[in-house]
Amino acid sequence: MFGFLKGLSVTFGQMTKKKLTLQYPEVKPEWPERFRGIHQFIPEHCIVCNQCARICPTSCISLSGNRDENKKMHIDTYDINFEICILCDLCTEVCPTEAILMTDQFELATYSRDELYKDIHWLYENHVKHGNYQQLQAAKVQAAKEAEEKAKAAETEKATVEASTAGSDKGGDA
């Protein structure tokens, strides 16, 4: 008969509970590591294999590359049309060199559709600002340091063993 009274007690009991509101623009949500946000692009990693453009279900990626003097492919343009991108993550899944990755950025609202065409510079900037640029740089510094130490160790070893073999110039450019 008075089932609604139980309901009233439930709603009243909620009043003292912790509030869950996230003050959004000031406080950003914490995203897990795998979060699929807007892409970042690292041009020096890209080998212009075109796999990302081919796997993309909406064909929102267009890219072009050049062969430089060392016969190495070099990326020239890399555009993602975020009007049709569905952030499915397939492009990063197929990328063999982790040149295209995702960030935790998700705010794409703009005043004009044109702004949703993101080019290589924007994507690189996103990499620097919100991507794993810091980690990559740190890793690079770390690798350089390690290589230097290795080279130094090799050199000292060489010095102690005597310079009987031809001097090698490996190390240094890891």
């Binding site: 709603t11 009243f12 909620q14 009043m15 509970k17 912790k18 509030k19 869950l20 509101t21």
Partner: peptide, 13 residues
């Protein structure tokens, strides 16, 4: 405010 509290929100702020 009251309905917000009852729904674990903070209401107008």
């Amino acid at each position: 405010k009251v309905i917000g509290w009852m729904q674990n929100r903070i209401g107008p702020n």
